[in-house]
Amino acid sequence: MTRPIDEAVDGFDATIHAPHRLRICALLDAAAEAEFSVVREHLDVSAPVLSKQVAVLVDAGYVAQRKAVRDTRQRVWLHLTDAGRAAYRGHVAALRAIVEGWPRADAPG
């Protein structure tokens, strides 16, 4: 029988865990949809870097993009897919389980 903590840790997702991608998912989980340039500004990354990381998430089926008008210009909007939201939340639960389940490095004994 697996312990609940093991099940939670099983939600760890290597695709999401890369720092930029984890931050992209965190931002898109908070908002229903965000424009590419707004994500770039919030995460303080260059457009090519964001583009590359988003492409990985799109390939994994975690993020979807569409074009829509904002300020009279066509812009790219990003959102988490249902699978992406579930994977992101599972990943965060896994991180919490790792933090709670493992003793701190500086803990006595």
């Binding site: 720092p19 984890l22 931050r23 931002l27 908070a30 995460l43 965060v92």
Partner: peptide
């Protein structure tokens, strides 16, 4: 595919990063 699972301190740092992004959002 080969990313190892993080240590508790690395997981804590990742969660702090997530919390910071969500606060801004």
């Amino acid at each position: 595919a080969r990313t190892p699972r993080p240590t508790a301190d690395e997981a804590r740092a990742a969660l702090a990063d997530v919390a910071q992004v969500q606060t801004v959002a």
